[in-house]
């Protein structure tokens, strides 16, 4: 059911764009208005959520650590697992953001015959996630050829390397194939593994189906439909130069592709995809573990009215003396 809802939503989006452009010819709406609106929503929405997160105080250092903290000189510390300085925390974050180190440590628990609990390393999620994210980045960077004129040499070089197998014309790019495979794996993981399927929600399936649709329409446009790329670039450059182009030469499937991307951008700030910004703001990752070396003042501490023993003794001095109770100060 949760799978079906997400699938129906993506199919409905596809039909919407197909009817909108293929039948009604609303090229300006799907090619100009919606992309602008989606980009604005994406940028403002992500910024808003990041600012909201940053407004939450983190009074104490709460990093999750798995290595020796810096202590005595002759005990070897583990700076990446248990950073002591800002720089070490930065390096730890860099490894987390670029290589998903916490996923690498993913383990799997299984009850074997006789009720024995087995725990083992499970690297598949890490491998799938790494493949997906890096390929998505490469595909994204390759797409800047549509948004820049002239195309930067580095983008051309990346596209050249990406298609170096020279399979077919236009050359099949490795990144899109791996991207499709990785997305397929991440979806299959949710569908096949019972425990993961049990905790999967429409919010998990929908982005996967949406991304799969984006990749599928992109591959179709490149290898099967083969739309007029000049017309596509005219639409993209029209957006960049604020001189929108109707893109009459572009195939309707291009507008479906563009609409899917617009939906992804607009949906982004409301969804779990916000982990893109959230990973940088994780207090269990981005803090140096120096609770014992540096004093951290809680920003919401308010002055508490206290009655010290010294004051107490002063208040009841005579009575205490009479009762023969020893005093701190005579």
């Amino acid at each position: 059911m949760r799978i079906l809802v997400s699938l129906v939503a993506v199919v409905a989006l596809y039909l919407l764009a197909w009817v909108g452009v293929g039948v009604l010819g609303l090229r300006t709406l799907f090619g100009t208005v919606l992309p602008y609106a989606a980009l604005a929503l994406f940028v403002c929405g992500v910024a808003y959520r990041v600012v909201r997160w940053a407004a939450v105080p983190v009074p104490f250092r709460i990093p999750t650590t798995c290595g020796q903290q810096r202590s005595l000189e002759w005990i070897k510390p583990s700076p990446l697992e248990n950073p002591h300085t800002g720089l070490q925390a930065f390096l730890r974050m860099a490894l987390e953001v670029l290589f998903f180190r916490s996923l690498l440590r993913n383990t799997k628990a299984e009850v074997r015959a006789g009720g024995r609990l087995i725990q083992g390393s499970s690297k598949w999620l890490w491998a799938g996630a790494l493949a997906f994210h890096w390929c998505f980045l490469v595909v994204l960077v390759r797409h800047t050829r549509f948004f820049t004129e002239p195309v930067p040499w580095c983008v051309n070089l990346l596209a050249h390397l990406d298609g170096f197998l020279q399979v077919g014309v236009p050359a099949m790019t490795l990144s899109s194939v791996v991207l499709l495979g990785a997305l397929g794996f991440l979806l299959a993981r949710r569908l096949v593994t019972g425990q993961v399927r049990y905790i999967s929600l429409p919010a998990d399936y929908f982005p996967l189906f949406l991304l799969l649709s984006i990749v599928a329409t992109g591959l179709l446009l490149r290898h099967v439909v083969r739309t007029d790329l000049s017309a596509v670039k005219e639409v993209a450059m029209g957006l960049v130069t604020f001189a929108p182009s109707p893109g009459e030469g572009a195939h309707w499937l291009f507008y479906v592709h563009l609409f899917f991307v617009s939906v992804l951008l607009a949906y982004f700030p409301f969804s779990k995809l916000m982990h893109m910004g959230g990973v940088f703001l994780s207090p269990t990752r981005n803090l140096a573990n120096n609770n014992r070396a540096v004093r951290h003042i809680n920003p919401w501490d308010y002055p508490v009215k206290v009655h010290t023993y010294e004051e107490y003794e002063g208040e009841f001095r005579e009575k205490l003396k009479t009762a023969g109770i020893p005093l701190e100060k005579e």
Binding site: T144, F147, T148, E149, E234, M237, V240, T241, A243
Partner: peptide, 14 residues
Amino acid sequence: PLWLSVARGGGGAE
């Protein structure tokens, strides 16, 4: 892409 286009004096839309 917007800033790059502005810096390059627009163009490329056709």
